[in-house]
Design a binder for these strands. Sequence first.
DNA 1: TGCCCGGGTGTTTTT
DNA 2: CACCCGGGCA
Length: 791
Amino acid sequence: MEDYLSLLNQPQKEAVLNAEGPMMIVAGAGSGKTRVITYRIAHLLKLGVEPFQILALTFTNKAAKEMKERIATIVGNNDAKSLWMGTFHSVFARILRSEAGKLGFPENFTIYDTEDSKSLIKTILKEMNLDDKVYKPNVIYGRISAAKNNLISWRSYQQNQEAALHDKAANMPKIGQIFEAYAKRCFAASAMDFDDLLFNTNVLFRDHPETLHKYQQKFKYIMVDEYQDTNYSQYLIVKKLAAMYENICVVGDDAQSIYAFRGANIQNILNFKNDYPDLKTFLLEQNYRSTKTIVNAANSVISKNKDQMRKEVWTENPDGDKIDVLRAFSDNEEGQLVANAIFRTKMEATAFHKDFAILYRTNAQSRAMEEALRKMNIPYKIYGGLSFYQRKEVKDLIAYFRLTINHNDEEALKRIINYPGRGIGQTTIDKLIISAAENGVSLWNVLDQPKQFQLNVNAGTLAKLEDFVTLIKSFSVVASTQNAYDAGNHIAVHSGILKELYIDKTPEGVSRYENIQELLNGIKEFAENDVVNNEISSEQSLSNARLLKDYLQDIALLTGDEKEDQNLDKVSLMTIHAAKGLEFKYVYIVGLEENLFPSQMSIFSREDLEEERRLFYVALTRAEKSSTISYSTSRYRWGSLISCEPSRFIDEIDPEHLNFKFNHQQSFEEPAKGWFAPKGNSFQPRKTGNTEIKSSLQSTTKSVAQPSMPAQRNLKRISESTSLTSAGSMQETGDDTRHLKVGDAVEHLRFGKGRIEEIEGSGASRKATVLFENAGSKQLILKFAKLKILS
DNA sequence: TGCCCGGGTGTTTTT
DNA sequence: CACCCGGGCA
């Protein structure tokens, strides 16, 4: 710890030594940001600051964990553990727990994840008799989330002209009322969603100045990492907490702001100096990670952005290789090209698999990459996607835990009241929900005292409900008297979940059973660990055992598989967002196509496009030795083949850094001109061609094999493994409907004879409105409808 | 009450 | 294409 200053360059050193007052560290990509933060904390401790007086906020659990570990190696485990370091959400969830009473919440409140939130919204829509085709739960969730991130309560939302106009224009004028119902239901369920954790922290600090004061005094030194990604709600929390000492240090890079879509406000960092006139700014511009080629290429891209702080990232590292640009003719071929390149590079450079990463814009792109890697026996690991805690069986058991700890947890209750099946059907649940809503109480309240809340069910059902209540109550007793593992195990057994999964001997069922075992193992590990010491936690007042409720708090905000072994020698696959903060020797950025990267959602506004460009900047700068980019001229999207154009971002790289490699040995010949649909249009089916054969094969196999095939799963396997040479023509699936026009007579397998009234769309999404003689008017997607043409 | 089928819909990105 | 949902049927 003594000689850490010698490891730092001049601006880094200055930033580390500057302990007091407001400061901003603008850290270019690869400029040693984490090193500066960790050493700065070490330095504060050396100056005599107590670890529990330091608050360090990050955006991901991963970043927090990493930083804690690095600090531990410098200052030792004990000090590192006493630091208040974590994500915004986890730190303020912890504070909210100890202050919950002030907001009318119990200390054991539940944290709703996105799935819970959307499910609650759906329930509310049903109750309000709103069509979820018009009121899309996703959109509503987004609106409510955005409002909360801007500290707009449901009350102010309802009075907000702008919001009203927006919702009216979107044909959803009742979002304000849904918001209100949602907020009240969360409260009744003793639950907070992700945004509530920040929103309610703001409420706490606004309505309870003495509480705010307490934390202002406690946190003498505050650091915020990735400050460019803060939203208004987070911004205000930080500002209030720092108001007393103004020992606030924010670290970030405006060029790497990539979370505006979820409310992050890049202006927070661009305008930071307005809040603190005597702000000191430290610029970290020397890059230690990447080659000159990569640094300069990234600079040439980001210089196209208007909203940015002026800075010049540079490096003393060698020039390195140029950036290879690969072109493929299909998404599958793109996977092959990338897998081949990885294979070759690994051989030539004697590198490890873990030195490689494949980065993409959307998760859907991982499939083609996976397939190609698997074919070449290259081990890989996908980050993101469904995490362990989001699997159905894991969520089911955790729902039991949640309900055990917080009886009011509506989403947990709905999830398990009839799982495993105990004869409590949808009708009964609907009655429960209605009764609860009418009386303004939680579902549990109704369950617990059905007579008092006029629950109208027959005696048999009532007995089943009573059994369920008794079961959960018995779990609560166990959970408060036994440690987390014993309680968890007890619940897994007596809920019937373990048995249910044990009986299922399909591969999926076995895997589910194993997942439950793994979850229980995790709890065991947790229960056997020492209680972490911190002075606000309520844990101390209880015995030393770690209880189930402690476990729940621990995992509520975990997303990824945290305990993933970093030493596995595997190629990493992840979205660019997930790659932020990471580095790899060799990086492959795939899918550089217009409407994919940049995303089609972003190309209408400069701000959105600039965010995409920053995303590309982040991707490029992950690489140490080399970056490779690839694109495909066609790709499957929404089930149909579309043609693609290379991304504008390729053109934005200074061409002196690029090396176009367009050789094609391993795939089919370049198709003749006109094979693909003209620009922007969907691919028009033809009778020959790789992709077309494949899709008609699938429908053929399906219609032939269906009667004798028990499970759909088997069908899929067959269509995948059957040789392409056996492909049939399109005849069996219906006539060629490409020249179909209004007025034509057609026949449908199920609806019978009818006449075309209207045709819209093109390619795979081409739809026809058909008036059938007996079945009325239907809208059909021609690709799937299998119409027979009669006239 | 649970399964099968067809239709409809959706893809940014995450705590 | 893959997933979800609702309707129809056993």
